[in-house]
Simulated assay, not measured.
Amino acid sequence: MEEEKEVELLYFKTFVQVVKSGNYTKAAYVLDYAQSSITTHIQKLETMYGGKRLLERHGRTMKLTPSGELLYGYAEKMLALYEESQQILNNQEVKTIRIGTIESLAIYELPHVLAEFKKRYPEVRVQIIPDTEAVIIDKINNKELDFGLIIDKPFISERIQSISIKKQKMKVIVPPDHTYTKKTFFTLADFKDETIILTEEGCTYRAYLLNQLERNYIDFTLSMELSSIETIKKAVHNKWGIGFLPEFSIEGHDQVAGIPFQDEGFHFYSQLLYRKSSSQGPVFQYLINIFSRKASV
Rank of each mutant, 00 (worst) to 15 (best):
N142P: 05
N142M: 13
E144A: 13
E144K: 13
L145R: 05
L145W: 04
D146I: 01
F147Y: 07
F147L: 02
L149T: 00
I150A: 01
I151M: 14
D152N: 12
S157E: 08
Q161W: 09
S164G: 07
I165R: 06
K166Q: 13
K167V: 13
Q168D: 06
K169W: 02
K171H: 15
K171Y: 14
V172H: 00
I173N: 08
I173M: 03
P175W: 09
T179H: 08
T179E: 13
Y180F: 14
T181F: 02
T181H: 00
K182M: 14
K182E: 15
T184H: 04
T187Q: 13
L188S: 03
L188T: 07
A189R: 15
A189C: 06
D190C: 09
F191T: 05
F191I: 06
K192W: 04
D193H: 08
D193M: 12
D193L: 06
D193T: 10
E194C: 11
E194M: 10
T195L: 08
I196G: 04
I197W: 01
I197Y: 03
L198E: 03
E200S: 14
E200A: 10
E200G: 09
E201T: 07
C203S: 15
T204Y: 07
T204H: 08
Y205K: 03
R206M: 11
R206H: 10
Y208G: 01
Y208F: 14
Y208Q: 03
L209Y: 05
L210P: 03
E214Q: 15
R215E: 14
R215N: 14
R215A: 14
N216G: 00
N216F: 08
Y217N: 15
D219P: 03
D219Y: 09
T221E: 13
L222W: 05
S223N: 10
M224G: 00
M224I: 04
L226Y: 07
L226D: 05
S227V: 13
S227C: 05
S228G: 04
E230K: 15
T231P: 00
I232G: 03
I232H: 04
K233D: 02
K233F: 02
K234M: 11
V236W: 06
V236P: 01
H237V: 12
H237T: 15
N238D: 15
N238E: 13
K239A: 10
G241R: 02
G241L: 06
G241T: 05
I242H: 01
G243P: 03
L245T: 04
E247W: 11
E247I: 06
E247A: 06
F248H: 04
F248M: 02
S249Y: 02
I250D: 00
H253Y: 12
H253Q: 10
H253I: 15
D254M: 05
Q255P: 01
Q255R: 11
Q255Y: 09
V256M: 05
A257W: 10
A257N: 10
F261Q: 00
